[in-house]
Design a binder for these strands. Structure first.
Length: 223
DNA sequence: GCGACAG
DNA sequence: ATCTTGTCGC
């Protein structure tokens, strides 16, 4: 799909923060569109070398069957800094996003607006692609929430700075909750709906679960 | 000043 | 994220 160049990638942490504050103003809410396809993304890193493996998996909805996938490798260009994850993961994802067909929805590991400046990885990806995005994190970065009930589907609101930024969702009985927040073009409740439509009995939604598996496999094969 | 801190 | 084996509970 075609992407938008909305900022340079060789930045200092201070410059990255300034860009987040600027781009955060462009983020919008919205409803889940008719889903024909959903794209899952993930990036893995080599232990020793400073290299990455990025993968994208396209799933057909509503059966969640994998239709297409692509991977890419390269050298890491930005360190991991809490709050600046998108500057580390988007460069690796750009090539695979260009090769992938434009989906109706994108799900990625990490947060959307549940972020210090309301501009997590999912928001950044949303602006770059123009596609509705959902951040699906395994732990909280900012904000607070009550522990959701034990049953699949139980959820509690995540509040940050007095605002609703997402939901802690029990995606599977007996598993720790997932922290869902909208990236771009979606409201918090819609983001949850999107994730629920992608669940298949596992803790992680199929798009990111399959993307993660592919990322690990591709790494081992040295692809 | 001290602790917390997506992947 | 990555380093790492088996093991206990839903």
């Amino acid at each position: 799909m075609k992407l938008h160049n909305i900022n340079p990638w060789n930045l200092s942490p201070a410059e990255a923060v300034a860009i987040q504050r600027e781009l955060a103003r462009e983020v919008r809410g919205g409803q889940i569109p008719r889903l024909r396809t959903v794209l899952g993304l993930d990036v893995s890193y080599q232990r020793t070398e400073q290299t990455f493996t990025a993968c994208a998996v396209l799933l057909k909805m509503p059966e969640l069957s994998p239709m297409d996938s692509c991977c890419g490798v390269g050298d890491v260009s930005f360190p991991y800094v809490p709050g600046l994850l998108s500057f580390r993961e988007i460069p690796p994802l750009i090539p695979v996003l260009k090769k992938a067909p434009r989906p109706d929805l994108i799900i990625v590991d990490g947060h959307g607006i549940a972020h210090p400046r309301r501009f997590g990885l999912a928001c950044h990806l949303g602006l770059v692609t123009g596609v509705p995005t959902i951040g699906c994190a395994k732990s909280l970065l900012v904000g607070t929430c009550q522990k959701p009930g034990p049953e699949r589907g139980d959820m509690t609101p995540i509040t940050y700075d007095g605002n609703l930024v997402g939901y802690a969702l029990r995606t599977r009985k007996g598993s720790k909750p997932l922290y869902i927040s909208p990236g771009h073009l979606l409201d918090p409740e819609e983001a949850v709906k999107g994730v629920q439509m992608c669940l298949k009995g596992y803790r992680l939604p199929e798009p990111t679960r399959l993307a993660h598996k592919l990322t690990q496999r591709a790494k081992d094969l040295g692809v």
